[in-house]
Simulated assay, not measured.
Amino acid sequence: MYPTTETPASAVPHPEGVSNDEFRAAMSRLASGVVLVTAHEPPLSAAGPRGEDVGMTATAFMSVSLDPPLVMVGLREGSRMDDLLAEQPVWGVSVLSESQRHIAGRFAMKGRISDRLLFEDIPRTRGEVSGAPLVGGALAVLECRTEQRVEAGDHTLVIGRVLTVGLPSGEGDPLMYFRGRYRHLG
């Protein structure tokens, strides 16, 4: 943004840069869809337990390319999902509907309980390729294979090739995130 006679002084960039609070406030005004990114963490050994399903709510998700079909998700660097997708090349995405707001809230909690308990009463299927849990009744589900990881500030951008697409219901309105809250479209 370039200063003009109509630009308030508070909107002009500071010489030392933009504060975290300013940037967060500006980005909160960008409406985003909400997805649940999931993966299946394999057991530590073949003789060990079956592994665990891991999930994370994300609003930094977008289509990157139609040919080949690519998507991108932003993960906080060092988060459990970031660490897992550095090792596990296949993962799932469930595009959540407005009626699935409780799922988004559950997987967005910081310092949360075990992922196993978070998945407990959520209807889901297993991805054919990834083995990742995919939310039943989601507007769309995707299975992806990591193509590229890009370090960007305090996040990792994971670009995935879409391997499968499912349109389980296609009904309902999308869950949106705007100004720090889940919102209904309309």
Rank of each mutant, 00 (worst) to 15 (best):
G33Y: 04
P42T: 07
V54E: 06
M27D: 02
R124T: 08
E16F: 00
T125M: 08
S65C: 07
L70D: 04
L70T: 01
S79G: 03
L70H: 03
V54D: 09
L134C: 11
A86W: 09
L96G: 04
H14G: 04
R116W: 05
L30H: 14
H102W: 15
V37I: 15
G74T: 06
R29L: 13
P49Y: 00
G78C: 08
A25G: 01
I113T: 14
E52R: 13
S32T: 14
V54N: 07
L30C: 12
E16W: 00
K110V: 13
P49E: 12
G33C: 11
V12Q: 05
D82L: 09
V71K: 02
G33D: 06
S10K: 07
L44M: 01
Q100V: 04
G55Q: 09
A86Y: 12
L36K: 03
R126T: 11
D82Q: 05
D21F: 09
E52H: 07
D82R: 06
T125Q: 14
L30F: 15
D83T: 13
L84N: 06
G74L: 12
V54W: 02
G51R: 04
G17W: 06
D83K: 14
L30Q: 13
S19M: 04
I113Y: 00
A58W: 02
A104H: 07
M81D: 01
G78S: 10
S63F: 12
E77T: 14
A104R: 07
S97A: 14
E120Y: 00
R112E: 05
S10D: 12
P13T: 02
P13R: 14
D115H: 15
M109A: 15
G78T: 10
R112C: 06
A25T: 08
G74I: 03
M109G: 01
H102E: 14
V35W: 04
S32L: 08
S32H: 10
A25P: 00
T57Y: 00
D53K: 02
P69S: 10
R126K: 11
L96Q: 02
P13V: 03
T59S: 12
G111S: 13
S28W: 09
M62D: 05
N20G: 01
P68F: 07
S94D: 10
S130R: 05
R124F: 13
E120W: 00
E22N: 04
G55L: 11
G51N: 03
R50L: 12
H40F: 01
